[in-house]
Design a protein around this nucleic acid. Structure first.
Length: 288
DNA sequence: AACCACGATGGCATATGTTG
DNA sequence: CAACATATGCCATCGTGGTT
């Protein structure tokens, strides 16, 4: 049995990406006729038209769309295999990395991360961008190099994940808040008015689920999209809020900067189940 | 090593189809 | 009808494998 011509993978990758024989030919420095013949060979090998005429141009068939991601990944991996081995010199590396992080990451890890990058890779610039959702499309499209957050759903084989840290919830009230006096109980915590943090604007979260298990409910006075807004509101009111705090961090590095806010003492620092901010169980953050 | 046959590939020229 | 894009016939070139 003859082996398929693996060069056709590159041709298919470019054809699908460009959606045009002429453009693919220009990109691969071939004539349109040569590219057209390559497409004909691909059609013969795959048994699918792959790209069909639609007016003046071509449109991919469902099979071509299905193959698109796999082919692109295969070509990149093959190119990596065939590339001469070279040692990465961090001192001479000049480029920008885009990090898509959930709320609080920059405040917790930004300073030490930037300090280490400045020391080990002075030519590297870090761009922190917000993470409004769990959509991994920016990772796949290459507009984001690394993403941190709670692992959720399927990430696909092209995304690599690594556990970085676990975080937990801590309750936050202003300095001198009545809750700071005496023993913190679930009932005392639930009483009063709360700030709910929800990126998606939901009207309840995992804290409410946990309270419900204990037969308690809380009153949500306001919903905000991030921890910074919640801290600002808590600082200037009697409202209570919940903040995520990486357990790998020692000391109140994050919360200590919230002047006027007090860290709830004792067991109230962590919710009853030791939950992370988004899932019922503690989750490792993901590095993709 | 030199030669030859064969198949694969690509370029040129041209046909065909579509759009404005 | 012109312009553009794709498909195809014909030919040249190149690489490979077999033979001498």
């Amino acid at each position: 049995m003859s082996r398929p011509d693996l060069n056709l993978l590159v041709t298919l990758d470019v054809l699908i990406a460009e959606g045009s024989v002429a453009k693919a030919a220009r990109r691969l420095k071939l004539s349109p006729s040569a590219m057209s013949r390559a497409l004909a060979r691909l059609r013969e090998v795959t048994g699918d038209p792959l790209l069909v005429r639609a007016g003046r141009g071509l449109v991919p068939t469902p099979r071509a769309i299905e193959l698109g991601t796999d082919v692109g990944r295969l070509v990149k991996e093959a190119e990596a295999v065939l590339r001469p081995a070279e040692r990465l010199d961090l001192k001479r590396l000049t480029r920008s990395f885009t990090l898509r992080n959930s709320d609080g990451f920059v405040e917790n890890f930004g300073p030490s991360l930037l300090a280490r990058v400045a020391e080990e890779a002075p030519g590297v610039q870090l761009r922190f961008v917000p993470k409004p959702d769990k959509d991994s499309a920016p990772m796949r499209e290459g507009s984001v190099d690394l993403e941190t957050g709670v692992i959720g759903g399927s990430t696909g084989p092209e995304v690599r994940a690594q556990a970085l840290f676990r975080d937990r919830f801590v309750g936050v009230v202003r300095s001198g808040h009545p809750l700071c006096d005496g023993k913190i109980t679930a009932a005392r915590f639930a009483a009063g008015r709360h700030i709910l943090i929800s990126r998606r604007g939901l009207d309840r979260g995992p804290i409410d689920d946990a309270l419900e298990l204990a037969g308690l409910t809380r009153t949500i006075a306001t919903v905000v999209g991030g921890f910074a807004e919640a801290l600002a509101l808590a600082r200037g009111s009697d409202l209570k809020t919940i903040q995520a705090k990486p357990s790998a961090c020692t000391g109140p590095a994050f919360l200590a900067r919230s002047e006027g806010s007090g860290l709830l003492p004792g067991s109230a620092r962590q919710n009853r189940n030791g939950r992370t901010r988004a899932e019922p169980d503690s989750h490792p953050a993901s590095l993709r």
